[in-house]
Design a protein around this nucleic acid. Structure first.
Length: 332
DNA sequence: AGCTGACGGTCAACACCTGT
DNA sequence: ACAGGTGTTGACCGTCAGCT
């Protein structure tokens, strides 16, 4: 008897009952147990995924041409560090609840990744919300930019959004300046469409103590550029300890930004001559004019242009008198 | 001359106050 | 309770002086 005939005879005794079939169906597809089997299984899986991604990519390409969007599995979307825009927690909750009940109006913009899958160009929070809502697909469109262009594009797009914090702008501007050392602040400011002075103020964050910078990394909404620049100046003047203390109190919501700035200046304020910082002149109970003085500049604010004009000639007359007296004093 | 930072001004949004 | 006025805050802007 040949080997084939022997094996056929043995197999002939194996009977597959209806019960066996049921058990097999309940177990579902089984992963191979041997190493070569597992390798082949893995290769097959990778190939299937690559095919799926290639197909998705093709669908996205044709959707771009036709102006449509494609449902992409959320587990194929990957975040690029530094590209995510800051969103206050309450706004995120608002977005998620909106998406719970409504369709996604603006699809997520993605770019294919060399490593497979897609990187998110914009729409991180929408993707997060979908994940939290237990959805497994999200509408996507293909971006037309390289990864670098996407980073820069996302940044400048974010810059136009008022809810991007100044500290986040600083981190990105700083990174841009490091990446392009040949570019001046003026050139970057022009590209971003902001005055050079604004950029300069934002970049002053770099002078803050390291402790404050790491705090701001987790709470970028803590400091605006104004207060940030003031605190950076205080740090440069050797008052870093006070800056750290003030920012900690700010984080605990015990003080606001202006109070934090004042805190770092406390000693200076004491040593300053007791100059008047302004006063108000009342007409009855209402303020008729508000006078503010800063160094050699005095500002007088009236309720209306007419009142300002009326006061103007009286002030001029008085000032001319003062100037005349001053010149007579100088002669004598 | 160009770049940068300091300083003060303007504006919008919001909070608070006051009168009805 | 509501509307309007007033004050405060933070973001943004323009000017100017110092520095390289």
């Amino acid at each position: 008897m040949s080997l084939r005939e022997k094996l056929a005879a043995k197999a002939g005794n194996i009977k597959v009952t209806a019960e066996d079939l049921e058990k097999a169906a309940a177990r579902g597809p089984q992963a191979p147990r041997t190493a070569p089997g597992q390798l082949m299984h893995m290769q097959g899986k990778v190939e299937r995924q690559a095919n799926e991604i290639a197909q998705l990519r093709a669908e996205l390409e044709s959707a771009r041409v036709s102006g449509g969007a494609v449902d992409v599995p959320i587990d194929q979307l990957h975040e690029v560090p530094g590209r995510r825009r800051f969103m206050p927690p309450e706004k995120y909750v608002e977005l998620r609840e909106n998406l719970r009940h409504n369709k996604l109006v603006h699809p997520v913009i993605v770019c294919p990744r060399p490593a497979g899958g897609f990187e998110i160009v914009s729409g991180h929070h929408r993707t997060d919300a979908y994940r939290e809502l237990g959805r497994d697909h999200i509408r996507c469109v293909l971006g037309e930019l390289s990864s670098d262009e996407a980073d820069t594009g996302a940044f400048y797009a974010n810059l136009m959004q008022s809810d991007l914090t100044d500290f986040e702008k600083f981190r990105k501007f700083d990174e841009l300046l490091l990446r392009s050392p040949d570019k001046t602040q003026a050139a970057i400011a022009e590209q971003a469409g902001v005055p050079v002075s604004t950029l300069s103020e934002i970049l002053s964050f770099r002078n803050l103590p390291p402790e404050v910078l790491s705090l701001l990394d987790s709470r970028p909404d803590l400091l605006g550029s104004n207060a940030g620049a003031e605190l950076a100046r205080a740090t440069k003047d050797g008052r870093g300890d006070r800056v750290v203390e003030a920012v900690k109190l700010l984080a605990e919501k015990k003080i606001d930004q202006q109070q934090a700035v004042r805190m770092t200046k406390a000693e200076q304020v004491k040593t300053r001559p007791a100059a008047s910082t302004g006063f108000k002149i009342k007409a009855g109970k209402a303020t008729w004019c508000d006078v503010r003085i800063a160094k050699k500049v005095m500002r007088i604010e009236f309720r209306s242009e007419e009142e300002a004009e009326a006061a103007q000639s009286a002030i001029r007359e008085h000032l001319e008198g003062l100037a005349k007296a001053a010149s007579e004093d100088a002669k004598s």
